[in-house]
Simulated scan of single mutants.
Amino acid sequence: MTHTTIAPAATAPEELVRVDAANIVLEENIRDHPEDALVEDWFVDSVRQHGVLQAVLGYRNDLGQVVVRDGQLRVLAARLVGCTVPVLIGERPLDVVHRVTEQYVTNERRTGLTDHQKVAAFRQLELGGLSVTAIAKQTSTSKEQVKASLTVAKSVDASTALAGGQISFDTALVLAEFDGDDAAIAELSQIAEGDFHDLEYAAEQIRQERVNEAKRIEVVADFQAAGVRVATDEDSYESVHRLTNAEPTDTMRPQLDADEHKTCPGHAVTVVVYHGDDVRVSPVCCTPEAHRPRWASFGSTPAQAGPMTDEQKAERKTRRIQAVIAPLTLWMVLIDMSGRFSERMLPDVVTKLWDLREVGR
Rank of each mutant, 00 (worst) to 15 (best):
A163M: 09
T141W: 13
V359E: 14
S131I: 06
R74E: 11
G180F: 10
I30F: 09
D20T: 04
D36R: 11
F298C: 04
V211T: 08
V279K: 00
V100E: 04
G71D: 06
E311N: 10
T5F: 14
E213I: 01
K147P: 04
T249G: 02
V81H: 05
V211G: 00
S140M: 12
D250V: 04
A10N: 11
A176L: 08
A12L: 11
A203N: 07
G90V: 09
L57V: 09
V349S: 04
V279T: 08
Y274T: 09
E204N: 12
A7N: 13
L173D: 01
V105E: 05
K118V: 06
H33C: 08
V284T: 01
I321T: 12
L73W: 03
R74S: 14
A176F: 10
V105G: 01
V350Y: 15
V271R: 01
A78P: 02
S297P: 07
V156T: 12
G58W: 00
R109D: 06
S342K: 10
F122W: 14
R294D: 08
L80D: 06
L175G: 01
V333P: 07
S155A: 12
L94T: 11
L346Q: 13
R242E: 15
R79M: 10
H50Q: 14
A192K: 10
L150Y: 09
D222P: 00
P86N: 04
A221D: 02
G299A: 12
V156C: 04
Y59N: 03
A303C: 05
R69N: 11
Q103Y: 08
A161H: 06
E315R: 15
D250G: 03
H275D: 15
Y59E: 09
T4N: 10
R18E: 13
D45N: 09
F341H: 11
T114K: 05
S46F: 11
Q72C: 05
A221M: 03
V96Q: 11
H50G: 10
V219P: 00
G82K: 09
